[in-house]
Nucleic acid binder design. Structure first.
Lengths: 110, 110
DNA sequence: ATCATTTGATTACTTTATGTAACTAAGTTT
DNA sequence: AAACTTAGTTACATAAAGTAATCAAATGAT
């Protein structure tokens, strides 16, 4: 048998990044601390899924959540060191996309 | 409004890589030409989804499909130039995972 | 005091994606 | 003709994601 020879760490990283929105959330946070609604409107994710993703990223120690008790409450999300360490991944994808992805053939057939 | 300012090419790349299995399929093909059943057993993907993924990757000119009319038929899948150009993405993820991902805490509670 | 407002979230419900397992097609051996 | 092999497909079940309404906490307006 030549079964699962894929490194578990790599597989875990892939399964994280293969979740819809995860990479985009991190990419947005590379721009700096942001709030829930800011992330939501910048990438067009639903509140429900954003909530899920942020919870998981917090658990993975990729995102840090800070509550500022003013009114209405402000909650700031930012990247941890581990989160920032993912920047090369996003940049590599960014570079590749510029070199190889053809723009969406905008079929503006009226 | 500070709406969708994300580059369409980048978004397209992300949406491709955010599909479950896509990155692993490409990663496997970095090892060289492989057949349907080989990919299937190496990463544990269902035939149905692998079929979908390979079709999309073919459309995106990332994967090449070659039919060898012997019996039983052999169908070889390999990366195109565009496919190979994604290697840095996978390597960057691989490197990051080695440095930052903690191995699955194997809860072997008897 | 009550009501509306704001942010960050959750819940109920619908739609889409994925998993599972049985099945098909073509060619060959038995 | 029946069995076997590879590369799929199909029908059905489960999981994930989208949508919209709703909640909680704090506060200012009435």
């Amino acid at each position: 048998m030549t079964q699962p020879t894929i490194c578990p760490k790599f597989e875990k990283a892939i399964s994280l990044l293969s979740q819809r929105w995860t990479a985009l959330v991190i990419y947005q946070l590379l721009l700096g601390t942001q709030r829930f609604s800011g992330i939501q409107s910048s990438i067009g994710i639903s509140g429900k899924v954003l909530s899920d993703r942020l919870k998981e990223l917090e658990q993975q120690d990729i995102v840090k959540r800070v509550v500022i008790p003013v009114t209405p409450v402000i909650i700031e999300y930012s990247l941890t060191d581990k989160g920032h360490s993912m920047e090369p991944i996003l940049r590599t994808i960014e570079n590749w996309s510029q070199a190889w992805v053809e723009p969406e053939s905008e079929l503006s057939a009226d």
